[in-house]
Every structure is written in structure tokens, then in C-alpha cells.
Amino acid sequence: MSEEILEKLKENVIQGRKTGDDMGVDESLSGTPGVLELTESALSEDISPESIITKALTPGMEIVGEKYSKKEYFIPDMLASAEAVGAAMDVLKPLLEKSNVETKGKFAIATVKGDIHDIGKNIVAILLKGAAYEVIDIGIDVPEDKIVDVVRQEKPGYLGLSAMLTTTMTEMKTIIETLKENNLRDKVKVFIGGAAVSEEYARQIGADAFCADGFEAIKTLDNFQAT
């Protein structure tokens, strides 16, 4: 029974069906329960939150990632799946905390001071949430002091910074310097992204990685996890 629920859950992640009302990618599961309903069913069958994540949500998202790489899926399909997993993670998070099970890691993300672009940041945030990371969205136009406060208080293992403009990307360097001044730089890996920045700029300012998009962020984070 539990295997069956987990398999259905995975299928619904692949279809990006958050609830039973959702059409999914090809409507083949129309009228059946979606990710949220199945997550509740799985919990009521005493399937552990950890199993739900590792046997259904994560493998489902991995298949979504593969389909995206093969151009079978596109950004909207992948966002729908990530949203479905994100909603399931919201249900599971308190239970994981209660049972002292850790998520894959905590990722804080912000668009830097002076920059108000948010759509790219939001896409990265939902994809990471869909990949079972705990995401703290600090917002847009965020001053370095606020970012440092979040790093100090929330202790994320990873910090993502977004800038779309050459005039605002310099703020990333300021943030890294401020983290150093506060003895926090070695506590958090810093990722940068956005139209204005590059791998070379990441090296220049001492960031740990440049990620061109949300998928690259997931891969890079997973690689850091593995090492």
C-alpha cells in the first residue's frame, strides 16, 4: 500500500499536480488526488516524512529535471512540479523538525540592495524548495546588514545573491566583505546569479559559485552536499 501511494505521489510530482483539481502536464491523472492529498494520505498510512521525500518527491523532481534537459518539459512544467513539491514540503517541515530529521540544507536567497528584480530569484527559490532544500527568501533590494543578520540568526549553509545590473552587482562584493568582517564567511557558501554576473565575477569577488539558472543551482548545491 505504502509503495503504491509513494508511486502515485511521484507520478503527480512529474505531472506537476499540486492538488486533485490540477490538470497536470497531459491530463492523464485528471480527477485523481494530487501531491497535497497524497502527502496527507501517506502520512495517515504512517509513511515517514523522510520516506515521502526520498522515495517520491525527490525522485519525481529528478525525472522532471531530466525531462527539462531533454526539452520534453519547459520552465512552466518544471515550476508546476516544484510548486507541488514546495507545498508538500510545507506540510512535512513541522514533522521533520519534530522528529529531528534534517532537510537537505538551508538556503537563504536575496536580490541585492538597489535591485528590484524578483522573478529570477523566485524561480530559483521554488526550484530549490522543490529539490527539498529549506528556503529562506529574504526579498528584493536587501541591504547587506539584513543579509548578515539572516546568516547569523538562521545559520543557512548556503546564501544565494541575485543582481541583474552592472550597477548593483558590486553589492555582492560588499556583502561578502561584510560577512568576512563579521566572521561569518566560512559559515556559509555564497552563490551568485543574475544577468549581470558571471563565473569570472564570482571568482573575482570570492563567491563560492556562479549559477546560470535554478537547475545549475540545484546541481551545484547537490555537489557541495556530496563533498
Binding site: L79, A82, E83, A87, I119, N122, I123, A125, I126
Partner: peptide
């Protein structure tokens, strides 16, 4: 509205609206 949708986790809708 797009920001509000994204805050509620509806990033697909926010992206389309954007």
C-alpha cells in the same frame, strides 16, 4: 499581483503574469 502570487508559492502564475 505577481509578487503576491509568488509570495504564496504560485511562481508559475507569477511568471506568466510577469
Amino acid at each position: 499581483l505577481a509578487t503576491h502570487l509568488a509570495d504564496k508559492g504560485l511562481v508559475l502564475q507569477a511568471t506568466v503574469l510577469d
